[in-house]
Design a protein around this nucleic acid. Structure first.
Lengths: 183, 183
DNA sequence: AGGCAGTTGCGACTGATTCGCAGTTCCTGC
DNA sequence: GCAGGAACTGCGAATCAGTCGCAACTGCCT
């Protein structure tokens, strides 16, 4: 789910075999699912789609392949503020680091890249004497559309009103719900 | 585990009762554990410590209280790059937002606040028309100490060396190991 | 002091992810 | 092309974090 869709299909395969990693049918299927995804997918969604290409693929293979790609820095793992469940989401790593904004009300995910973010990373490397491998900036908040609508957006805001009990717990969902569970 | 230890003990209690939230013994115990923690704790560690104050406290109470504090914006939830397991870590929210650097080799966590980070958040609010509630910037990389030592830090780096199989999977641990599992 | 809404402990449950193992397959060297 | 072995896979069971329903309990307001 890149900002610019500048990915050469099959690039993953080339990269992996260049590194002496075996290319199996299952891996090819999983890679192609990730490479062609138009939105962030979690492991169970990747499994479901990969099975359309190779019905025998197993859950563990998906997890093992995701681990492999992660270790090789080809994909990024996201939490997307855990808007629904604890699953992780994956996207192919792009040239440009970007952050993810998750609307706590509607669940919409927005991506945003910025020179300031790049500069911040350079500052960290310098000032903290760090070599950055992955930088994950995830923001939870309220999008313009949701702020436009009525209803309490008061959570997280410094509203020291008396006798106001626990604010609403769950985020509303006008975004697409997905079927849960893997396999 | 704040940058500056400028927390007034009992502040949480006051804040909660100000908001009409009932202060039970269990909550007091959990709050005090979080307020006095010198490092990031996950739910099971919080439970273990809270039980020293009130032996009857249950796992679910810890989770429910953490949820409460989160919703009220009194604590932040962190992943710390999932260096060990999938548990979340918690820290009391401070005035100043800061990022967390996790060394992928030794597991050390470093905190860092920066005007650039603040500026970046302002930019996001403006350019994306967003109201930010939580901003979580987590960085995985290699600290100076670990880079000083030998051994492959090549993961994640663009090293298209031929015939190099899967890079080492697990991060080494010279940081304190913890016992896993809750209750 | 009394009452009850808000909390709690318990035990069962779910969903995500991992693991050991035995069978299979890709890739290399011949 | 083909054999051999390391790398990979599917399977089933296990683990682990976190959640839930329910009946008993208790702060806190009046």
């Amino acid at each position: 789910m890149p900002l610019a869709n500048s990915q050469i299909p099959g690039k993953f395969q080339a990269l992996l075999s260049d590194r002496g990693i075996r290319l199996t049918g299952q891996r090819r299927a999983i890679l192609s699912v990730i490479e062609t995804a138009k939105r962030h997918l979690d492991a169970s969604q990747i499994l479901r789609r990969a099975r359309k290409l190779d019905a025998s693929i197993d859950r563990s293979t998906v997890y093992r392949t995701l681990g492999l790609l992660k270790r090789h820095g080809l994909i990024d793992e996201l939490d997307l503020m855990h808007l629904e469940g604890e699953a992780h989401y994956y996207e192919r790593k792009l040239n440009r680091d970007h952050m993810h904004l998750a609307c706590l009300r509607c669940g919409k995910i927005t991506e945003f890249a910025s020179e300031l973010f790049d500069a911040l990373q350079r500052q960290v490397e310098e000032r903290c004497n760090y070599r950055i491998a992955v930088a994950r900036l995830e923001i939870g908040g309220y999008c313009a559309q949701c702020r436009g609508q009525a209803r309490s957006v008061e959570n997280h805001l410094p509203t020291p009103a008396r006798h106001r009990a626990d604010p609403g717990a769950e985020p509303h969902q006008h975004a697409t719900k997905r079927t849960k569970g893997i396999s």
